[in-house]
Every structure is written in C-alpha cells, then in structure tokens.
Nucleic acid binder design. Sequence first.
DNA 1: ACCTGAACACCGTTCAAGT
DNA 2: ACCTGAACACCGTTCAAGT
Lengths: 236, 236
Amino acid sequence: MAAEPQRKPRRPRGSLNQQVIVQAALRIADRDGIEALTFPALGRELEAHPTAIYRHFRDKDELMLALVDALHEEVTADGLPVTDDWAADLRAVAGRIHAAFLGHAQVGQIVAARTARRPHEFAVVEHILGCMRRAGLDDSEAARCYRVFADAVLAYSSMEAALHALDPQAREADLLSWEVDYRRLPPEQYPNLAATIDHIPALDSPGNFPLMVELLITAIRAGRAGRAGKGTEEAK
Amino acid sequence: MAAEPQRKPRRPRGSLNQQVIVQAALRIADRDGIEALTFPALGRELEAHPTAIYRHFRDKDELMLALVDALHEEVTADGLPVTDDWAADLRAVAGRIHAAFLGHAQVGQIVAARTARRPHEFAVVEHILGCMRRAGLDDSEAARCYRVFADAVLAYSSMEAALHALDPQAREADLLSWEVDYRRLPPEQYPNLAATIDHIPALDSPGNFPLMVELLITAIRAGRAGRAGKGTEEAK
DNA sequence: ACCTGAACACCGTTCAAGT
DNA sequence: ACCTGAACACCGTTCAAGT
C-alpha cells in the first residue's frame, strides 16, 4: 500500500543541537506543563531517541538552566532602550522581565529556584546599573540598589509565574481560598483584615507587580534617606 | 543471642499523624536535602511502611503544602509584637519570615512555587495590615501595600533560600561566577558594570534583604507619592 | 562522531490482603 | 481502622552496540 508503517523517523545526522532542543523543551513546557517535560517527551517532540539529548546536555539540570537563560535572552532580544528618564527605563526593563516570565510561566516559576547566572543576564545587569547611576546614586548605592531591584523583580515575577502555571482548578481553588477563608475569620480577632478585606487585591491582580516596582523607584528617588545595613558612607 | 535481628520495628497503632510526619519530613529535608525527601526515606525515618503516609496525606503535594504551613507556623509561634513604631514592626515580621525560610532553606525554596494559602498565614496577614494602617495609609492603600510587601518578602526570602539550599560546590560555583565572569566583561561594552563591580554585594550578602525591606518602608512612608495602577483615588 | 537499544536504580501511587 | 506487601507505570541515567 501507499502508507507503510514507517516506524522510526530518524533525524538527519547533525540536526540536533542545544538550540533545537531548548526550543522543543519550551514548546513542551508551555503546552503541557513543566512536569510533562521529560526525556521521553523530548524524544517524541524532536522525533529522536530520548537519550540523544545527553549528547548535548550533561543532565536534565543543565537543560533547565538553558531554558532559564532562554528567558533572559527574550528579555534582551529587542535591546533595552535608554532614555533620559531613568525611572521609566527601570519600569520598562522590569516589565520586560515580568512579561517574559509570565509568557513562559512554566519555566518562569523555576527561575527563583535556579539561581545560576548565565550569559544573557549580563546585558540586564548593565542596563539596570545604568538606570541607578542616572538616578543620581553614587557607585556604592547604585550597586546595592541594583542588586535588590533586580532580585526583587526576578523573585516576584517568578512567584507570579508559579501561580500562573498552576492548573486552572488548583489556581481557582487558591484564589477562592482568599475570597472565602479570609472572609470567615472572626472580625474581633482580625480587625484589620475585616476593615480592608474588600480592598485587598487578588493574588493575581495585574496591579501588584507594577506597584512593587513603583515603591522601589519611589524609595530610590527618595535617595539617601533610610538606607540600612553596613557600608553607608557618610563621606560627602 | 541477646541481639536478635528484629527486622521490622513496627510502629504502635495510632502513633502516626500529620504532625509526626511533618516533623520527620522537616528533619529529612534539613539534613539530606529536599530531593532526598521521598516516601521510602520517610518510611525509614518514621520506622513505618512508606505507604503508611497515604493514610494521612492524599499525595506528596499535600505533604509539601503542610511543610510550607509549618514554616508559617514558626513565624507566628512566639507571637508578633505590636509596638508604636509601625516601621519597626514591619522590619521585625519581615525578619522573622526571612529567618524561618533560611532556617529551613530546603523547604523555604519551594514556598514561592507553592502559592497555596494555609491557616497559619492568617495571623501574618492581619499583622502586616495593622502596620500599614498605623503608617497612615487609608484602607485601600493599606490593602494594596500589604499585598505587595508580603509577597515581596515571601518571594525574596524564598529565592535566597534556594541559593542557601544549593549544595556547597554548586553554590560556590554560582558565587564565583559573579566574581570571575562579570570581571571579564569588556569595560567599553559594560561601562556601568566596570565602574561599580567592586561595590556590588554578593548574591548571598546578608544586607540585601534588609535593604529591600527598607526601600519598601521608605516608599510607604513617602505615602501617596508615586502610586501606580488603577484605584488611585484623588478623593481627599 | 553521533545516535540507538536495552538495562538499571528509583520513585509515586494503587490496591488487595493482613491484623 | 489502620498498616503492610506486592505490583505498576514512569523517569533519569548509563553504557555497550550499531551506523
């Protein structure tokens, strides 16, 4: 007959490489969830033998780190514009990171747990440092504020990605728990909750992340006021 | 002779419960790492059959959520003191959360990924809301700032726990990557990095978290200035 | 040099059988 | 009611054998 079984669609010789594997892994994670990202699944997606990936990545952890780096690459893909408004630039880069993490929420959720630093993060570091210096901070303050701003944006985005990555039922249950459980608490024991419960934003409210960014920018603008920890040089 | 084999040290009848299992799980995670926390390992630690845990937890995920809740319990264990200084109270509760997460870093690292809200978190919510209201924020602002402050503290602490939970070699490699890789970058392409590299705190510098908390407090104190997002009522 | 096949150790989960 | 034993499906990883 015309359609013979064709059991083993072998890949051509050198067609497997890190980039092809990373793209396939991203497709699987985005489509079926991070827990569905297994070597057998990768083999099917690539139409290759599951263990062929070991030619290109030492182990699964190294593949995961490559996925995280792919997200950072997406952040810097179109270049990070530098304007004369450092605060606007900080909002922009924070928004880019946040968007990339939620856009690939299944991978974004593991970023916080995988702290390894990879090549594509360099450009982001340089960019944020520039914003801090243009804000008028001295080198020491700029360096410390960079560290905190970048890590806060990373950690918060990763946490929101984790919520975003939950399957719909579990997520709905999580959000409903807030609506239901918290309203049931006795007002005399939880007076502050009782007074403000109607104003508390949802866990996944889109305004949460921008507000955190805005608070950090406000504090950076406020400048030397309220700096904690060692290394606060009064020299000036 | 005297010491007979005694192969199966059976547990007495009703001696297994959620609390006993959670404590055993925490011991294993703290001692051997989160990836060593398996049903077989739990069986050995409890001297019970591995699958006996299924009598008390629906699946492994539910056990993990119980571990996360145990951390929140630790935060509120000694009560959260309310003084006349809302900023100091915010520092204190943030420090408690941070300490609990790093104290059980193996569990702390998964908190951000497991967003489920559990009983022992109620008291923390109430406490932080009280701080925000005493800061002079109206109910809407207090609610929004609570959400961002609490989640930022949670996310940042969880990320630091993840770094803290890495095995020593991997962690050393991560920290060294900063020292080495970043110093190798061409200064003309990364001028801001070149200028500030000596001032950038280490990934695990103990000052990072307090600085983030201080920045948030500074912004909250700055008050209405620079609030972003919808719901910014100009009524006043 | 690169990919494949088979095997190994291990884990989460289920369920019928014991006490 | 509670725990145990055995089995099942599945996964990461290794390694000798193929082309």
